[in-house]
């Protein structure tokens, strides 16, 4: 077929932030399907809760302090996370480095705290269906926490190398976005794990 050029796009930028960029939609899609995974796990929890006459089964509810501490740190982590976001939008390499290191440290603290949370669930995964489902849900969220922590550390390292080019700032904003998802996903799980057994 013959062609006629009717439009020139040479002046367009080579990267963008947010919904303009492809990876943002990729992250969004992954969040949607992972969010669905959380929803299904919550559904399984509630189903087992509904069909069992006693809940929790043969165990006392989890101790509150690890989950609550986790929740508070998660919520507070949104603040440095937003600073990282702003620095990335400003393409300020120095600040991005600082905030990514801070976020990595917060992630490590949360991961350690997560260990305590498992230890204070007061049930094993093989005690009962209750134990199974709380370990599943906490495990599922821990996977997300660990994955995003890994991503943050890799990005932080990247920012100290010669690869810290402008389009990497877009990756940083996607990472910020994903962290927010990990935080938001945690909130209903916190209620489910720590408070529903106390109803």
């Amino acid at each position: 077929m013959k062609q006629t050029i009717v439009r020139r796009v040479g002046e367009l930028p080579t990267f963008g932030f947010g919904p303009q960029s492809g990876p943002w939609w990729g992250a969004m899609s992954f969040m949607a399907l992972e969010g669905m995974g959380f929803a299904i796990a919550i559904g399984a929890y509630l189903y087992l809760y509904a069909v069992n006459p006693t809940w929790p089964i043969g165990a006392s509810p989890p101790d509150l302090w690890p989950g609550t501490a986790e929740t508070i740190i998660f919520l507070l982590s949104i603040i440095p996370n937003q600073y990282a976001n702003r620095a990335a939008h400003q393409q300020d390499r120095h600040k991005v480095r600082v905030w990514l290191v801070v976020m990595s440290l917060i992630g490590i603290v949360l991961l350690i705290l997560r260990g305590f949370e498992f230890a204070h669930l007061n049930t094993r995964w093989d005690n009962s269906a209750y134990g199974s489902v709380v370990w599943l849900i906490l495990g599922l969220h821990t996977t997300h926490l660990a994955t995003d922590l890994g991503d943050t550390i890799v990005l932080a390292v990247l920012m100290f190398t010669s690869h810290a080019r402008p389009r990497r700032f877009s990756d940083v904003t996607d990472n910020v976005f994903y962290w927010n998802f990990v935080v938001i996903a945690w909130l209903p799980l916190y209620v489910l794990l720590d408070w529903v057994p106390r109803l």
């Binding site: 069909v51 069992n52 995964w125 093989d126 269906a129 199974s132 599943l136």
Partner: peptide, 17 residues
Amino acid sequence: LDRLVSTRFYDPSSGGN
């Protein structure tokens, strides 16, 4: 998990369904 580490999701004797 039920088959490998003895979780009880599908074991009616332990609250599974």
